[in-house]
Design a protein around this nucleic acid. Sequence first.
DNA 1: CGATCTTTTGACATATGTCAATTATAGTGG
DNA 2: CCACTATAATTGACATATGTCAAAAGATCG
Lengths: 352, 352
Amino acid sequence: MRKILIIEDNVDVRENTAEILQLAGYEVITAENGKLGVDAAMHQQPELIICDIMMPLLDGYGVLHLLGKNTLTQNIPFIFLSAKSERTDIRKGMEMGADDYITKPFDDIELLNAVESRFRKLDLAHRELPHGQEGMNQLLSKIEGIHDITKIAEKQQVKIFRKKDLIFSEGDTPAGLYLLKSGKAKSYKSHELGKDLITRMLQPGDFFGYVSLLEDTDQQESSEALEDCEVLIFSKDDFFKLIFQSPAASKQFVKLLTGKIAEEEDRLLSLAYSSVRKRAADALLVLRKRYHDGGDQPFSMAISREDLANMVGTATESLIRTLSDFREEQIVEIHGSTITIKNLEKLQKMRN
Amino acid sequence: MRKILIIEDNVDVRENTAEILQLAGYEVITAENGKLGVDAAMHQQPELIICDIMMPLLDGYGVLHLLGKNTLTQNIPFIFLSAKSERTDIRKGMEMGADDYITKPFDDIELLNAVESRFRKLDLAHRELPHGQEGMNQLLSKIEGIHDITKIAEKQQVKIFRKKDLIFSEGDTPAGLYLLKSGKAKSYKSHELGKDLITRMLQPGDFFGYVSLLEDTDQQESSEALEDCEVLIFSKDDFFKLIFQSPAASKQFVKLLTGKIAEEEDRLLSLAYSSVRKRAADALLVLRKRYHDGGDQPFSMAISREDLANMVGTATESLIRTLSDFREEQIVEIHGSTITIKNLEKLQKMRN
DNA sequence: CGATCTTTTGACATATGTCAATTATAGTGG
DNA sequence: CCACTATAATTGACATATGTCAAAAGATCG
């Protein structure tokens, strides 16, 4: 039940208004002057405030002003309800930042409609976005539907990277938000003296490079094309606009980040205590999950042993030996650099 | 320069209005009917829209309705500017979700004030919060200043945990957002058969347990008191309110999450390729950073070898041997479970 | 002060890393 | 399309960092 705060000194008006709203199914709290009203707003966090202007102790303008100073209350919709009906009065109220201004005497219906309208606006901004499989692509494209994201994309530069090209590297100043349009790529971090750890395998539709944008630092990781790629680069501004435009978008983005955190914590655990054998199995499963086309065919993919080792976090030779074991155990089949998963279940049930 | 879109069919009014705003230093784009107006709003992303009601092709109500359907435009402040000055007309406009309604004829000043007032409101919501050292505590407390957070806290339950008590454990349904008020605690994840990895050492003021709240899953990690602790538990609702109330708050929170991601990626790299010796040195440095009181005293802390090993991600015995090495090299001093850092520089410059 | 838990050390096993050599694959230019 | 070359994959031999199990020495707690 939505909570509405009424601030009004006249007992009759206050109780009458409260009654109307209660009958309409709202929870109502009341305050008989501005000071008490501000207090109530701070402590009870109503979802909407209806406020008279002429009041003893602290008038309506003062209430609005004070609430605006506090982040917890500044976003609560605020409606003036006043007998002051001159044009200048109304303008003053609106200019102070009110969301609506209703003059007395007023109709029940007018009041209810005004209230409902503000709630509708609130809901709109907080409405859950259809939330997606995973990946920032789903997030961003779903914010507006693929329709709009391509519209934005039209304004952006498209860059082509050939296999083995660096898309960006550690220490670069971030050029913007990257979106992989076609091809495969990897994100990785480098350890001293040439050992890399792949943090993410990218598929078409994936966004990347946003951490340093948000952290406002140089790139903390590098990215390299694994095959020929088309990459879109969005400006930082567009990115921030998209993310922080509506609370719903922020929420979705926060969920995405949290998902990433959860994933990384699992990986930390496995890197700390799981054997190379287990981690290798996991890496193959990750590849399958990322790149499997969904057909009935057993999953098959060409990947360099070095990259695979860098996903697992081990030496190339160790990875190769593990793969050979898998081959002998009929878990995978190997032709050149192509690995085919023959026995998915065994991979999934791999013990440490 | 802020961009304003004017949608108005009458040439004189349109150009006159545009001129006023331009003189006031705004960038102005215009559209001569509703259809074009909606188009312009979608593609040019103005920061405010001023719109007539009676227009050919698509009237102002229609414009507002259409813009409301699109997440990219629904949050743009919208002001009606109309000759329809009957109370019912005004009410209808506001009920449709407009942010202001100015009747013609109007004063230059009225218009400018209305525009400025909406921008002020927008700025308020997006205003950068004073951004803090690190940790969610700073985030949340800074949103309102410690003043308010304690106010919220007053409504919450305070729980006391004794040393070694579980605060929550993997698989629990999240009770809310946790805030450590006093004492020390750890967050950790368990690997099969009793090996734990400490994901975070908590100090007073730290928030924890938010990932599962946002992910809407069971707890993915456990938390245990390392000494007697006071813990505040906030309801999920309060937490979400705080985080998503204003874009500025969301932004700050997003930054916090990204910081965590960056940190975890570094840890992944080190877990994959750094020696126990190096990681042990890092762990000691983390402890120092977290718990050092800032005095001139060399940093000193009692911690169980098992916990330290679980921070490093190694066996207790291995960690102990490493510590013994450090002791022989005069890097640390050990008395019982208390470790004192004697040579900070050597720790920091530890090679792999 | 005994009982329990923690820390430390020792002895040993082994998973994984390293270096070098061999074989297979893929890319390139004639 | 083939031969040639550079690169990648594989295997072998070996070193070693780290884990494991057991026992002794200390610390802690009621």
